[in-house]
Each structure stands twice: as C-alpha cells, then as structure tokens.
Design a protein around this nucleic acid. Structure first.
Length: 170
DNA sequence: GCCAACGTTGGC
DNA sequence: GCCAACGTTGGC
C-alpha cells in the first residue's frame, strides 16, 4: 500500500523552461530587441518550431538569443517569454516575403511568441566555443543537421552557456 | 559561393 | 503513401 503523499503535487507553474531562438542579426539583433524592449517573434515558418512556441513556451521562460548567419555565430544575450502566442501578421500581408496565401484569418497557420529583452552579453558566446565544451555535446544547437529556429535548452546547458558568457547562474 | 542536411510539395 | 524534385538553412 502506498501511503498518501505528504508532498504537494508538482505545480506546473513552478516549471521554468529554457529555449534558444535564432535570428539573423542583419534582420533582427539583440540590439534591436534592447531598443524595442519586447517583440513578437515574426517569421517562423516551420511547423515544429511553431508547435514548440504554441504548446511549450510559457510566460517567464528564459531565452538564449542566438545570432545566426553572423560573424561569428554566437549566443548574444538573454530574453524572457512574456505571454501566449498570437497570429503572425506577416502571413496575411501580400507585400511581405512571409506572406502565406494558404493561411486564413479565421485559422491562422503561423504563430509568434513574444519576448522581452533581459540583457545583452558583454561577452557573446561564439558557436565555436559551445562546440569546444564537451558538457554541451548533447545540446540540440550543436547536433549535425539541426536548423530549427526555436529549440529547447536544458537547465544544465543553459547554466553552462551563462558561465561562458561570464555570468553567474542566478 | 559551396554544399550537406532537412522540410515541403505534388505527381502518381 | 511513396518519393523525386525543389527550396531553405546556415556554417564554413
């Protein structure tokens, strides 16, 4: 017989997850986010990334802001998820490169998460440095062929990246 | 610019 | 449902 637990049930509200969002800095950089304070993450056109934003990212989650197609590619700073997903307006704009004629306003195909600026790293963490840390070998970003623009990051990997950035894990 | 890896599309 | 063709990603 299992005695009744004396512990409270694990509360989903205490779970804070960590993510990595990729952006080309020539399109939208950590400096742009610092200037804007917060932003809707427009432009995701991959179903897996969309589903992650829709189903898994929660307010208060922490985000590594990664500069892709940059010199060098690097984790550039930190952001925080601020709320639920909303339709990505660019899918309905015929003048946008991201226009999707198959998406309907009453059933939007593409969604965007919302993030707020937390900090720009004084010391960005280059991809090469991440690759050089054996403790990060399993990080999704470093897997061969990976190219998701929205990725999960484990709490352990997140803390290690912060250390590389010269930050004390909080 | 190259190209490996992956995702999407569409004919059948 | 298969799969070839095509488009995109993104480091180098």
């Amino acid at each position: 017989m299992t005695p009744p637990s004396t512990r409270p049930p694990r509360a989903a509200t205490v779970l804070q997850r960590h993510w990595l969002l990729k952006s080309e800095p020539t399109v939208y950089s950590i400096d742009d986010l610092e200037r804007d304070g917060s932003t809707g993450w427009e432009g995701v056109r991959n179903y897996q990334a969309r589903n992650t934003m829709r189903d898994e990212m929660k307010e208060g989650d922490l985000v590594l802001f990664y500069h892709t197609n940059a010199t060098p590619p690097a984790v550039a700073g930190l952001a925080r998820v601020t709320g639920v997903v909303t339709p990505d307006p660019t899918q309905f704009d015929p003048k946008s490169e991201l226009f999707d004629p198959k998406s309907r306003k009453d059933d939007p195909r593409w969604l965007m998460c919302h993030i707020a600026f937390l900090e720009k790293f004084a010391t960005p963490v280059p991809l090469e440095r991440l690759k050089g840390d054996a403790a990060l070998a399993e990080m999704p970003l470093l897997q061969k062929g990976q190219r998701l623009s929205v990725q999960p990051v484990s709490a352990a990997h997140f803390a290690i990246v912060l250390e590389h950035a010269g930050r004390r894990p909080s």
